[in-house]
Design a protein around this nucleic acid. Structure first.
Lengths: 197, 197
DNA sequence: GTCTATACCCGGATAGAC
DNA sequence: GTCTATCCGGGTATAGAC
C-alpha cells in the first residue's frame, strides 16, 4: 500500500503523529524488518538522524505505534460490542467481540504482533488506554477476571496461531472459534434460548 | 547455565546433534539474540565458518533445535497424560496435560517461542513428530478436531501471554487456567463426579 | 529541523589455505 | 574439518555544520 504510506507521510498533523503513522504504514506493508530508523525516515523524505529531533529513540517511536494500535482496537471492539448487543444479549455479544478481535488482528498481523508479543511498556502508554481496550471483553465475562483472562487467552491463541501459520492448511478455523466460544458462553445462555422456543 | 553449555559442547554424539544441543543451551541461557553462527561456534570452540561443514545454513540449524524441542515436548505430554489418567479419568487428565504444557513453556520461554511463533518448517521436521506432540491433547478432546484446536489455542494463549509478560503483575494465572479448563471440561464430567458422591 | 559524515556495533555467508 | 581473511549487508545513534 504505497498510497497509505504517502498519505501518512504527507498528512499535516504534528510531526510525532506523522512519524507514527508512517511507521505503522511501513510495518503493515512490509513487516518488522522494515521498521528501521532509516526506512521510516526515507518514507518521510528525510534522513534517519533527523528523526531524533522528534523522538528520543526507537523504543519511543514503537510505543507511539503500539499506542495508536490500542486506541484503534479499543474503538473497534466497543463498536462490535454495541452492535452485538442488538441481536441476542448473551452469546451474540461475545461472538461479535471475538469476530472483531480476530478481524483486527488478521488484517494487520505485524502490528498485532508488535502490540502483543513483547512486554507492554505501560509507562509509555496513555493512561487508561489498556483498560479501555479490555473493557468490552471484561463486560462480556461478567467482570469475572479469571474468566476474562481465559477468554482473552483463547482469542489471542487462536489469532496468534492463525497469523503465525501454525494450523494445518485445511483446518476449519471458524469451527474452532465456535467450539471455543461455546465452551466460554455463559452456561445455559444458548440452552435457555432454545428451551424458550 | 554454563554447565549445560559445556556439557552440550563436549558430548560425543554426532556433530549435528552436538551443534543443536549447544545452540539450544545458548538459546535457553541468553535468548534469541545469542543464537548466531558466531556465538554457537564459539561455544563449541570453533569458528563460525566451520559450522557450514555440518549444516547448510542457519535455518537448518534452527530446525534441528525446533525438532529436538518437539520430541522433548511430545514425551513430556505423553508422560503427563499417562500420569493424569490414574486420578480421575475426565478432568484430571486434561488438567495434567495443561499443567505439563505450561511448565514446559515457562521453563524454556525462548525455545517455546522459536517452536511456535513462526511457520512450522514441516519439511525439515521428522515425519510424524508433530502428530506425536499433539496426540495427548487430541485424545483428551475426544478426537474432536475443532475442540482440540480451541483447547490448544487457549493453552498457547495463556502460555504466550505469560512468557511475554502481558498479564498484569498481580493477575492470578492459576485461577485463569482453572476457569479455562472448567469451560473446556467435558460437560457433566465434574458434575457427575459430584452427583455420585 | 534538516543535512553529511561517521562511530560503532552486529549479522550470514564464501574463498581458499592447511 | 578447521582455519584466516574477507565480502557485503544491516542496524542505532551522535557530532557538528547549515
Amino acid at each position: 500500500m504505497p498510497d497509505t504510506l504517502q498519505a501518512a507521510a504527507r498528512a499535516p498533523k504534528d510531526r510525532q503523529a506523522q512519524i507514527a503513522d508512517t511507521a505503522r504504514a511501513l510495518l503493515d506493508a512490509e513487516g518488522p524488518q522494515a521498521l528501521t530508523m532509516r526506512r521510516i525516515a526515507g518514507a518521510l523524505g528525510i534522513k534517519a538522524p533527523s528523526l531524533y529531533k522528534h523522538v528520543p529513540d526507537k523504543a519511543a517511536l514503537e510505543a507511539l505505534v503500539v499506542a495508536a494500535g490500542f486506541a484503534e482496537l479499543a474503538s473497534t471492539l466497543a463498536a462490535a460490542a454495541a452492535d452485538g448487543a442488538g441481536h441476542a444479549d448473551g452469546p451474540g455479544k461475545l461472538a461479535a467481540i471475538a469476530s472483531a478481535y480476530r478481524a483486527y488482528a488478521v488484517a494487520r498481523p505485524h502490528l498485532y504482533r508488535l502490540m502483543t508479543q513483547q512486554p507492554l511498556r505501560r509507562d509509555l502508554l496513555p493512561a487508561g488506554l489498556e483498560a479501555r481496550a479490555a473493557q468490552p471483553l471484561a463486560e462480556a465475562a461478567g467482570y469475572d477476571e479469571a474468566r476474562a483472562r481465559a477468554m482473552w487467552a483463547f482469542a489471542h491463541g487462536m489469532v496468534s496461531l492463525e497469523i503465525d501459520g501454525r494450523f494445518p492448511p485445511q483446518a476449519d478455523l471458524d469451527q474452532a472459534w465456535r467450539a471455543g466460544l461455546a465452551a466460554f458462553a455463559p452456561p445455559g445462555a444458548t440452552q435457555r434460548k432454545i428451551a424458550e422456543d
